[in-house]
């Protein structure tokens, strides 16, 4: 499955092109109002663009532009399912009926639809909720059911519009894991403004700013070395990969402690630690007796970013105040120790 998207929506001044490869998840990252939702609306067939080539597996879904024969496949016939910020479970139907909705709509028998619903409810660990009404389950549970409902439609492409933005932070890690599992070999477009979501769920990131693509590339690359202003602001993430051993991430000869996101990584398996530059402190001498993670590094670059200074040390970076840079006399080449609290580090198995 390949999804080629290119569209220009004049009234909203949005002009974006990207491609989703087979089994690939593309994250659209950008500030509010950048045009991410417009892109989803065009992909879902809810918005008529002024110029467009939206093609799914060789089948034109939306074609528009001067001198071209207009194609606008209606939303129900695109095989593109939409998962919104709100679960939007049909309030008058039970959880089971919600998940059976898509198979029933395309004419499956009751038994078939029931089997599909059971499968997907189990897949999102919501099997026991089948007989409940949407008003009787929590927001996190509802979003799981919404995922099951979207997948039960057997879409060729899944569109996710900030699926975790409206949820309690306590339930996001578990839901993220569920999404990681179901998106693993599925073509999907994920709209988010959360770098961690992009990092954990997407293979490729497209950064959109003011209706235009600011940059795109493999997720880890874009997020760790952002070129666009927005990516730099929310991302510029420190990403360390290593092996999970005895409760911490081993990177080279060092152990990095952090909070595990989702299921615990397997012993000896690959794992990744992520933390924000703003969580990193810089020391000239290693502080003694600190419970923090300490990472020796050599400064490679110092760049001002608004009222803060981003200090880069190879793959790592830290955001510090201009006063700190002056007091510590930080210049490229300086040997420093970077320190980050374990509670600021997210570790997940890869």
């Amino acid at each position: 499955m390949t999804f080629e998207f290119s569209a220009h929506v004049a009234p909203r001044d949005v002009d974006v092109s990207f491609t989703v490869g087979p089994g690939e998840t593309v994250a659209l990252l950008g500030p509010n109002g950048a045009g991410k939702s417009t892109v989803l609306a065009v992909a879902a067939g809810l918005l008529r663009p002024d110029r467009a080539d939206v093609v799914l597996d060789g089948r034109p879904l939306t074609v528009a532009g001067e001198g071209r024969r207009r194609v606008q496949v209606p939303p129900h016939d695109r095989q593109v399912a939409l998962l919104a910020q709100q679960p939007l479970l049909f309030p008058h139907l039970t959880v089971r009926d919600n998940v059976e909705f898509a198979p029933r709509s395309r004419g499956a028998s009751r038994a078939e639809a029931a089997a599909v619903a059971r499968h997907w409810l189990d897949e999102v660990s919501a099997g026991e909720l089948a007989d409940r009404r949407p008003s009787q389950i929590s927001g996190g549970q509802a979003q799981r059911v919404a995922i099951a409902r979207a997948l039960a439609a057997d879409p060729r492409l899944l569109l996710l519009d900030e699926p975790m933005a409206a949820l309690d932070v306590a339930v996001t890690p578990a839901l993220r894991q569920t999404l990681r599992r179901v998106l693993a070999d599925r073509s999907a477009v994920l709209v988010t403004h959360d770098a961690l979501d992009a990092l954990l769920l997407a293979d490729t990131v497209v950064v959109i700013e003011d209706g235009r693509m600011a940059e795109q590339g493999p997720t880890a690359e874009v997020l760790s070395r952002p070129r666009s202003a927005f990516a730099a602001q929310i991302a510029g993430l420190n990403i360390l990969t290593g092996t999970w051993r005895t409760g911490s991430l081993t990177v080279g000869d060092r152990a990095v402690h952090g909070m595990v996101d989702g299921a615990r990584p397997t012993e000896g398996g690959a794992a990744t630690a992520v933390f924000s530059p703003s969580a990193v402190s810089v020391y000239r001498e290693p502080p003694s007796g600190s419970p923090r993670n300490l990472l020796p590094a050599r400064i490679t670059e110092i760049e001002p970013q608004g009222d803060r200074i981003r200090v880069r040390a190879g793959a790592l970076s830290a955001d510090v105040t201009p006063q700190a840079v002056a007091e510590l006399d930080l210049t490229p080449g300086t040997e420093v120790t970077l320190s980050v609290k374990a509670t600021e580090v997210t570790i997940y198995g890869t």
């Binding site: 879902a44 809810l46 209606p74 939303p75 129900h76 016939d77 695109r78 095989q79 593109v80 399912a81 939409l82 919104a84 709100q86 939007l88 049909f90 309030p91 008058h92 139907l93 909705f101 898509a102 709509s105 395309r106 409902r149 979207a150 039960a152 439609a153 569109l159």
Partner: peptide, 26 residues
């Protein structure tokens, strides 16, 4: 919004009307 979701799940306009729109505004 519910009608949009229903359509994206593959429901034709008549199905959306019958199974989503009308029950919601009952």
């Amino acid at each position: 919004q519910y009608e949009v979701v229903a359509a994206s799940l593959g429901a034709r306009p008549t199905t959306v009307f019958r199974r989503v729109t009308i029950p919601l505004v009952l």
